[in-house]
Each structure stands twice: as C-alpha cells, then as structure tokens.
Deep mutational scan, measured.
Amino acid sequence: MASDGVVVEIGKVTGSVGTTVEIPVYFRGVPSKGIANCDFVFRYDPNVLEIIGIDPGDIIVDPNPTKSFDTAIYPDRKIIVFLFAEDSGTGAYAITKDGVFAKIRATVKSSAPGYITFDEVGGFADNDLVEQKVSFIDGGVNVGNATPTKGATPTNTATPTK
C-alpha cells in the first residue's frame, strides 16, 4: 500500500443473489490541510450489481451534504461517478479525517463476483488547492465463495486525467 498520499479503498462485503448490500468507500491518509475537492470514477458490471443509491459517509460534515457531495450512476456506461467540492468557501466542510467517504447500496443480481474497480481520477486537492497523490484499492461483493480481489494492489495516480 502507498505510504504517502490519500488511499481510496472500496470495501469488500459478502452478499447473495437478491440481497441488498452496503459497500463502503474509505479514505485513508487524509492530509493535515484536509480535502477540499476530489472527483473520480469507479467501474462495475450492472449485470452483477444493480447500484440503487449512494449515501455520504461520516467524513462528509456539510450539514447539507447534497451541496458538497454528488454522485451519478450510469449503468449503460458501467460507471459510478463521485464528486466532492467543499461548499462553505472557508474550508469548514472539508474532509479532515480518515473514514467512510461514501456507502454504495447495491442489489446482487448474479452469482458472479461483484467487482467495483477504479477507472479514472480527475483530481484530489487540499484546502490550499494543492494537488494530492492518490491511490485506489478495488473491492466489491463476495457472492458465495467468490472473492472480488482483482486489482487489490493500489493504483498510483500522480496526475489528473480527463
């Protein structure tokens, strides 16, 4: 695992066909100046998982989280898009600690492993708008004895992609 920078880890949970599971997305290594904004994309298989919603985690402190935390689910493109932009203008609602960034709610549709993997990152910046190093650890849903650990090695991303 990367020793510096922010680590975004997609949790690994267990479920069975027809059940709804909650998959946490963790941030670790949050910089001392916090995270003022970030955007990134995960990939998944809508034939295996139906993403039914995404909720902000406990490290989102904006009293009205829909102003700073936004997501979009595109089953036709097989992606989930995340956007966080601190909304106070003063840094008061920045992410300042490690913990759960988001909770992905999904219904298991198939007995195949439900991988959720890193696809791309736009950027991560602290309260001074300084770009942060970030790496990703894939996860998803274990169905029966299947284990979604494909790509469990962190993917280092030093520069934003478009």
Rank of each mutant, 00 (worst) to 15 (best):
V108Q: 14
A106P: 07
A102D: 06
F136M: 07
V7R: 07
S135A: 10
A152C: 13
I51W: 04
V13T: 06
G144S: 12
R105Q: 10
D98Y: 10
I54Y: 02
P154Y: 13
T161A: 10
V8K: 01
D58C: 04
V48R: 06
N142Y: 12
T19P: 11
P75K: 03
G53A: 07
S32P: 08
K103M: 14
V81N: 00
D128T: 07
G114P: 06
I35F: 03
A112E: 08
T159L: 11
I54T: 07
T14G: 06
G139R: 08
S135G: 07
V141D: 12
I95C: 13
D45I: 13
A85P: 00
E22N: 07
P75R: 02
G89N: 01
D138M: 09
P113G: 11
R77Y: 15
I104P: 06
F124G: 00
T157I: 10
S16P: 10
F40M: 03
D58T: 08
S3H: 05
S3K: 07
V130C: 09
V30Y: 04
G91F: 05
I73S: 04
E50H: 08
F101A: 07
E50S: 10
S110M: 11
G122S: 00
V134C: 06
T157P: 12
K150V: 09
N156Q: 13
S110F: 07
E86N: 00
N37A: 14
I35C: 01
D98N: 05
T147I: 12
G114A: 08
K103E: 06
A92V: 07
I73Y: 04
R43W: 02
T107C: 05
G91D: 15
N142V: 08
P63E: 15
P148D: 04
P75Q: 05
N37G: 15
G89Y: 03
I95M: 13
K109N: 11
S16L: 11
G151H: 07
I73L: 04
S110V: 11
K150P: 12
I59V: 14
T147Y: 13
N47V: 09
P46I: 08
D55P: 10
A102N: 13
P24K: 03
N37L: 00
E131M: 02
A72P: 00
L49C: 04
A152G: 12
T66P: 09
I51D: 10
I10F: 03
G11A: 08
I73P: 00
S88V: 02
V17C: 05
N47A: 05
Y74H: 02
P46S: 06
P154M: 08
P160T: 13
D62L: 14
A92T: 10
A106D: 01
V17G: 04
V61E: 04
V143K: 10
N47G: 13
L49P: 13
C38S: 08
V108T: 11
L129N: 02
T20R: 05
I60T: 14
S32E: 15
E22R: 14
R43I: 15
G151E: 10
T19W: 03
T149Q: 09
K33D: 02
V81A: 02
D119F: 06
S3P: 09
I79E: 01
T117G: 07
E131T: 05
G139N: 15
I137P: 07
F136N: 14
G99A: 09
E50T: 07
C38L: 02
V30R: 10
K133V: 11
V17D: 13
N64Q: 15
E9C: 05
N127P: 01
K67H: 15
I59A: 13
I79Q: 01
D39G: 00
I104E: 01
R43F: 05
P31T: 04
F40W: 15
L129M: 03
I10C: 07
V134W: 00
N127E: 03
G122D: 00
A36S: 02
S111F: 11
D138T: 09
T147E: 13
V48N: 08
N145V: 15
L83F: 02
E120W: 01
R77H: 04
N64I: 05
P75D: 02
F84H: 02
N145Y: 13
V41D: 01
I10R: 00
I54L: 04
Q132N: 04
T20I: 14
A146H: 08
G144H: 11
I60W: 09
G140E: 06
G151L: 10
A72H: 00
T161C: 14
T20N: 07
F118K: 12
D55Q: 06
P46D: 03
A36L: 07
P56F: 11
L129H: 02
I104D: 01
V141G: 14
P63L: 15
T153H: 08
T20Q: 03
D76W: 02
R77C: 01
E22F: 13
F40R: 00
I52V: 06
T161S: 10
R43L: 09
F118H: 03
P160R: 12
D58L: 12
F27I: 04
S111P: 09
A85E: 00
V134N: 04
A125S: 02
V108A: 11
A125V: 01
K78W: 02
P63H: 08
I10V: 10
D58R: 12
V130P: 00
V21N: 15
E120C: 02
T155S: 12
Y44K: 01
V17L: 07
I95F: 13
A94G: 13
L129F: 15
T159S: 13
N142C: 11
T149E: 11
P75S: 07
S3C: 03
D128W: 03
K67Y: 14
P63R: 12
I80G: 07
V48T: 04
S110L: 12
V61W: 15
V25L: 10
V17R: 09
K33E: 02
C38W: 01
